[in-house]
């Protein structure tokens, strides 16, 4: 029985090979957008693997979060900054080092996994969303909430880091109602006029939000 390849086995093999090949392509691709697109294939393969292992919910989460959002963000970032068609000109000197490190890491992980699960045969069964929810929200409720709290803190921290101090840049507020030719046009470039030095009219327009920021 163990020697016979079932359809599921073949599919699993296919997904694994595709994912692996795509992962290698991500690294060796000279074109940064191609690399991101290969990453899509890799992540979809991972989702496929999850699916074959009976973790349906996890697979769709993988698709929704990674393919639907993270990759879109990556591509968004690439397009916003640089998106050259064709291979990138610059050569990375650390390639050999990275190759060595990643090979070592791969071998180490293989070793760990084989040592830990080498002769364990998992009895695969379908895990429904309800069962998963029960595990997360009942059994592991506290770690889950702690994780959520941590992520929220990280998010707020990121906002605080990214936020400009007063006088550092343009005061962002509900800019819809600010009259035309306002401060935003002028101060969009770095090193522009500071908030205090702006014209009284523009100051008045931004004045509403300034005290609020101090309170925060």
């Amino acid at each position: 029985m163990n020697d016979v390849l079932t359809a599921a086995d073949i599919f699993m093999l296919l997904v694994a090979v595709t994912g692996g090949a795509a992962a290698i392509s991500v690294v060796i691709s000279r074109n940064v957008v191609h690399a991101a697109l290969f990453l899509v294939v890799t992540l979809l393969s991972v989702a496929g693997t999850f699916l074959m292992l009976g973790a349906e919910f996890l697979a769709w989460t993988q698709v929704l979060v990674y393919v639907g959002a993270v990759i879109v963000l990556i591509l968004f970032g690439l397009m916003l900054t640089r998106a050259p068609i064709g291979p990138m000109a610059q050569h990375n000197e650390n390639g050999h080092l990275a190759f060595g490190v990643s090979t070592l890491l791969f071998l180490f992980l293989c070793l760990v996994i084989f040592r830990a699960f080498g002769d364990v045969r998992l009895d695969l069964q379908y895990t429904g969303a309800a069962a998963l929810g029960e595990v997360i929200y009942v059994e592991w409720a506290f770690p889950f909430m702690a994780l959520g709290f941590m992520l929220t803190v990280a998010l707020i921290g990121a906002i605080i880091l990214a936020r400009r101090e007063e006088g550092e840049g343009p005061v962002t507020d509900l800019a819809d109602e600010i009259p035309a030719r306002d401060s935003r046009d002028v101060t969009a470039s770095p090193g522009a006029i500071s908030a205090g030095a702006r014209a009284p009219g523009a100051r008045a327009a931004g004045g509403g939000s300034a005290p609020r920021e101090v309170q925060q």
């Binding site: 349906e56 989460t61 639907g68 990759i71 879109v72 690439l78 998106a83 429904g128 969303a129 309800a130």
Partner: peptide, 26 residues
């Protein structure tokens, strides 16, 4: 009748923007 049908539908339909991005860049 997938157990996580809503999730599946939303997840997969969000992938179509990739086609838009690919077209836009290429």
């Amino acid at each position: 009748n997938l157990g996580a049908g809503v999730f599946f539908a939303l997840a997969v339909s969000s992938v179509s923007v990739l086609g838009v991005l690919m077209a836009a860049w290429s």
